[in-house]
């Protein structure tokens, strides 16, 4: 053994003169990391299946429900029965996909902490921050590509199922294209929030719990606790409500926070909501970067 070491290393000064760390190389490494864990590949596939599958199922259910009344009849006069927005039917799976992708974001960083891999990674990239940027970029590109394909596939598939059984939406309808892109952006943003929380908390369970508490539980609790005037001032700016302002076709209808709470909040306009959501995502990533730079690994 020692002989082979000597044979491979005696001319070491000249061996890898180009072996330097760079942002692009770290991006390549993180891309390889994502692909070489079976769990992340399965998770990504699951998110796609959920988005498309639930859209098809929801559309099928809705079509089935209204078939007896509408079958064979003219389109006029059936509208009152259909209270569900056809784009919302198409997006039936996005909230579950959000849970899946958010968890993936957390695990992409927390998995390195729980395994000790983080010390290997940071010894190879002692500047540290390129690792976070690379993970963020890889997650953004992968989730954006997969979710764009899934969201639009879900839309066209569900509208095809709904076709002939009630109202359908078209990309040219007001707000529809924006809502679809909004769903893609929201899913990408939640993935990044997961990454930030995974880096901040260094714990898979803690990161996932915090992410979903922040997105799903806190708004409902605040709705119960806060007086209406405060609630209307604060709640539209929470990440979940800010997201709804650009993921819904018609955000001006307002939104309820969680079943049973009944609190309805005026949502922001899509543009303002998107800006607020971006501030949340960028803020969390910036906090994660600051602490990643400062803390002990």
């Amino acid at each position: 053994m020692s002989a082979s070491v000597a044979a491979t290393t005696h001319d070491r000064v000249a061996r890898f003169p180009d072996a330097k760390v760079s942002q692009w190389r770290v991006i390549g490494a993180e891309w390889l990391k994502l692909r070489t864990l079976r769990s992340t590949v399965i998770t990504l596939a699951a998110a796609c299946v959920v988005v498309v599958g639930f859209a098809a199922m929801a559309a099928g259910v809705v079509s089935g429900d209204i078939t007896p009344e509408t079958n064979g009849a003219g389109p006029a006069g059936q509208m009152p029965l259909m209270t569900v927005d056809p784009t919302s039917i198409a997006m039936a799976g996005t909230s579950l996909a959000m849970l899946i992708l958010g968890s993936l974001g957390v695990l992409f960083m927390s998995g390195e902490h729980s395994s000790g891999m983080i010390r290997t990674t940071m010894s190879a990239v002692p500047q540290r921050l390129p690792v976070l940027w690379a993970k963020a970029l890889v997650l953004v590109v992968v989730s954006a590509v997969l979710m764009t394909a899934s969201v639009f596939a879900a839309f066209f598939l569900s509208q095809a199922i709904l076709e002939g059984n009630g109202p359908t939406a078209a990309l040219s309808d007001p707000g529809v294209t924006r809502a679809l892109w909004g769903n893609v952006a929201y899913l990408v943003g939640v993935t990044l929030m997961g990454l930030a929380l995974g880096s901040l908390l260094r714990s898979s369970a803690g990161g996932i719990a915090t992410l979903f508490a922040g997105l799903l539980v806190v708004p409902g609790l605040l709705g119960l606790v806060l007086p209406d005037s405060w609630g209307n001032a604060i709640m539209p700016y929470l990440p979940d409500a800010a997201g709804q302002s650009f993921t819904l076709v018609d955000p001006s209808a307002g939104s309820g926070f969680g079943p049973g709470f009944g609190a309805s909040v005026d949502l922001l306009t899509p543009g303002t909501g998107a800006l607020v959501f971006v501030v949340w995502v960028v803020g969390l990533i910036a906090l994660a970067a600051t602490l990643l730079h400062r803390r002990d690994v």
Binding site: F16, K20, V21, S22, A29, T36, T121
Partner: peptide, 16 residues
């Protein structure tokens, strides 16, 4: 979850 080979590939790639 990663193979030894892929673990080392990942590490090698960070530094070219």
């Amino acid at each position: 979850g990663r193979s030894a080979y892929n673990h080392l590939r990942v590490l090698a790639r960070t530094n070219g």
